[in-house]
Amino acid sequence: MHRFANPTRFLKIAGYVQPWMAAVTLALFATGLYMAFFTAPPDYQQGESVRIMYVHVPAAWMGMFCYAAMAIASAVALIWKHPLADVAAKATAPVGAAFTFLALATGSLWGKPMWGTWWVWDARLTSMLILLFLYIGYMALQGAFDDRARGAKASAVLALVGAVNLPIIKFSVDWWNTLHQPASVIKMDGPSIHPDMLWPLLIMAVGFKTYYMWVLLVRIRQEITANKVRILRLKQVHGG
């Protein structure tokens, strides 16, 4: 049972942190949404459609952030066999997939009025679609084995291999000609976006991040408890 010493301590801490994460997330969303709709100006070229940015960009950032977190956790699980790492990677996948899907869907809704098309097969959009497929593949692979440990190992390897897609997404707008605009926030010479637009964007981005933490805590607690249920069931079968 000492293997669960760590997860047990985690369960306790997670129980305390979770309501705070919820409160911070709701406060950030309330502030961010107010600023996005009332204090941020319309764009001089894109008009009011630019307000899609305040959900599109945070969703896209989180789609990549979650994948990076999942790949790192998978590496830790493969190398050090830390019991929490596997659980964290598994709990991250559906959240990252949801964010990636949202980035694609809101991008489509933004692309239609601005580019005149819902979709183009250019580098940024295609690499983002591949990211969504990687998440789906990861989740499918996890459930594809009768032996849970083998499923976890196979999906962890997939998560690591798929990580090469992350720099491709990031630099796709520089390496290839694309309809998608280049980076305007994370750049060497500082953001090229006005503070009135930058602040609501950053507040929404942090709100998306704390939302991820919130859901992650819930899902990790669920996974750890599910492991305990499995152990009790085995006990019932063998000891009963």
Binding site: E48, R51, I52, F101, L102, L109, K112, P113
Partner: peptide
Amino acid sequence: GGYGAYVWPSYGLTAVIMVVL
């Protein structure tokens, strides 16, 4: 500004998916 048909579904879809998850 004429973009309501694109802005509101973006926010609506985001809200629905995040709340459901």
